[in-house]
Design a protein around this nucleic acid. Structure first.
Length: 322
RNA sequence: CCGGAGGUGGCAGAGUGGCCAAUUGCAGCUGACUGUAAAUCAGCCGGGUUUUCCCUGCGGAGGUUCGAAUCCUCCCCUCCGGA
């Protein structure tokens, strides 16, 4: 049976750490499932090096072609695209799917680790309508419309689609735009169910979830923010700016990049405030991740506060793998 | 001790007689999410299990008033300036 190991959970629970460890033990390679680590140059802010244990300069890691190698383990899906470019689930499924196949070809265990729920879902299960491409021109037009106009538009061109949307999405311009985009390609709302590029049929997938009590999670996040600043996150962002990454784009990238853009533009004036804002935003992000992952099926959850959890995980993986 | 400013929900900070359980921001909580997902969007946020319902409530104790966070009196506390 073709095996894939998945490690998921909210930010700062140590997914990458665990993935590396298991990769060492079970002859695996890691595939990052993170919508921001795919970008070149977003290193400190996206935590490409795990745990803060390794300083960026200490040589236990290196960048390879299409992967980073840490502790002798290859981690893929880092640095696959220029941050000025828009990357999407579609790209991820395509690129990561290929990486998974290649790892398997080498006879190694693919270990997918990350916190971007949608990407993971798409990679594992596929998404309908994934084949309907982004229509930039149309989006630009639609973005000018008010919420109300967007709603009217969708109701007009595809009442069915509108009916299917829930109340929240009906108030979400971004979702409305995509709905119109889809409707404009297949008027009748045919569900063009393209299974993701990686069919999971025939795969034996083990999902390990990492969790922590809320308070602990927040504390870890808070410490990590401080440590990232210490590691030079602000300089990283400055450098990205000098290389031509606009503040506007940084804001689209969110969290540390968005907030640091505001900081560099002088919208946030002191570092203490900056730290607080960063921490608060990331708490919110972690909450959203938790909400998403709650619905994920067949996950074996582990509380990272449990001293024995790494051993437990290893045992379970061992039983599953051999 | 004198002069001045002030004490509002976890914090910040509005409100200066009824429309106030009290604007707003932050923090917190819940949820949605089928191509921007670290994005985007919705809700809750004094207590009572939901409520157009009840209770407690704007430092404390009294008072004025049909009615007070808002006015008066006394007390307690904080801050600034002068001794």
């Amino acid at each position: 049976m073709k095996k894939i190991l998945v490690i998921l959970g909210p930010t700062s629970t140590g997914k990458t750490d665990l993935a590396l460890k298991l990769a060492n033990k079970f002859n695996g390679e890691v595939i990052a499932c993170d919508s921001r680590q795919v970008y070149v140059g977003l290193d400190i802010g996206t935590g490409k090096l795990p745990g803060g244990k390794w300083k960026m300069e200490n040589g236990k890691w290196k960048k390879g072609k299409g992967f980073w190698e840490m502790d002798g383990v290859k981690v893929w899906m880092y640095d696959v695209v220029d941050p000025k470019k828009q990357y999407s689930v579609y790209d991820y499924v395509k690129d990561a799917g290929k990486v998974v196949r290649e790892i398997r070809k080498r006879g190694k265990l693919p270990i997918i680790a990350g916190g971007t729920g949608l990407y993971l879902k798409a990679l594992l299960e596929g998404l309908p309508n994934l084949a309907i491409p982004v229509n930039r021109k149309l989006r630009r037009e639609l973005e000018k419309l008010s919420l109300k106009r967007l709603q009217e538009k969708l109701q007009k061109i595809s009442p069915k689609k509108w009916e299917k949307m829930n109340n929240y999405d009906r108030q979400n311009p971004r979702r409305l735009i995509r709905a119109v985009e889809i409707a404009s390609v297949c008027m009748d709302d045919i569900n063009t169910t393209t299974v993701g590029l990686m069919s999971t049929r025939g795969f034996d997938i083990l999902k390990i979830g990492l969790s922590a009590p809320r308070q602990v999670l927040y504390q870890r996040i808070d410490e990590r923010v401080v440590s990232r600043i210490y590691q030079g996150m602000i300089e990283e962002v400055k450098q990205l700016y000098e290389l031509g990454l606009s503040f506007k784009r940084m804001r689209q990238l969110g969290l540390e990049y968005g907030i640091l853009a505001n900081y560099l533009e002088g919208k946030i004036t002191n570092e203490e405030e900056l730290v607080k804002i960063l921490q608060g935003e990331i708490h919110g992000f972690a909450r959203r991740q938790i909400t998403w992952f709650k619905k994920e099926k067949n996950v074996l959850w582990f509380d990272i506060m449990d001293q024995n959890f790494p051993g437990e995980v290893e045992k379970i993986v061992n039983r599953w793998y051999y």
